[in-house]
């Protein structure tokens, strides 16, 4: 049997992250770790060590879908892991990320006011005001927290849906971070 590593327990971090954001939205900033670390490994190491060993989300899907059998374990539809869909979704995701940063900028510049809500699936606004006391930090810092947490929660929910429908880690087939890091690795290791 394989030896367990400390990083085999990072799925706990994944749960903790969403729990923290339920009490104080400013913890959303911690999610930036999950954003930059994969890129650091890809750009400097030319590998996907993050996806392969450190990603709490991937581990969580494996646990829920595999060990706890919350997945039908049916094949992922072929288009879902096709190049055009993966890169298309990456572009869409980055555009939405850019939009979120722009909203943060608008709040910072005083052009729009802080909205204490999260947006699920880029559409449904959910009041989330109890997690923040106005004035604790600069408005844009709070705005970014709400925006970033929305992205994280939306992608988690998408991941859980495809986990239930298909394989435990079907999300990883088109996860923007996974696509981006593989793309970087391919460029670095020029196939």
């Amino acid at each position: 049997m394989k030896k367990k590593h400390w990083y085999d327990y990072l799925w706990i971090w994944s749960i903790l992250y969403f729990a923290l954001g339920f009490f104080n939205i400013l913890f959303a900033w911690l999610g930036m770790i999950d954003f930059f670390l994969p890129l650091v490994f890809a750009v400097f190491g030319g590998n996907k060590f993050f996806c392969n060993h450190l990603c709490g989300r991937g581990q969580l899907f494996s646990k829920l879908g595999g060990e706890l059998k919350c997945s039908r374990c049916k094949p992922t539809p072929r288009w879902m892991s096709s190049k055009w869909f993966r890169y298309g979704f990456l572009i869409f995701f980055l555009t939405m990320f850019g939009n979120m940063v722009f909203q943060t900028y608008l709040v910072g510049a005083g052009a729009s006011s802080l909205r204490e809500a999260i947006k699920l699936f880029w559409t449904f606004r959910v009041p989330w005001g109890w997690t923040y006391t106005a004035g604790t930090v600069a408005d844009w810092v709070a705005q970014f927290s709400f925006g970033f947490y929305s992205l994280m929660l939306t992608s988690l929910l998408l991941g859980l849906i495809v986990m239930a429908l298909y394989k435990p880690r079907t999300w990883c087939a088109f996860c923007p971070m996974g696509t981006m890091t593989q793309g970087i690795c391919k460029l670095k290791n020029k196939e």
């Binding site: 590998n47 996907k48 996806c51 392969n52 993966r86 880690r169 990883c172 087939a173 996974g178 690795c185």
Partner: peptide, 19 residues
Amino acid sequence: VACGVCENICPLGAIKVHR
């Protein structure tokens, strides 16, 4: 997609994500 699912499940360490 180089996700590493196979690497993590293989009981013999016979499959690995290459770079």
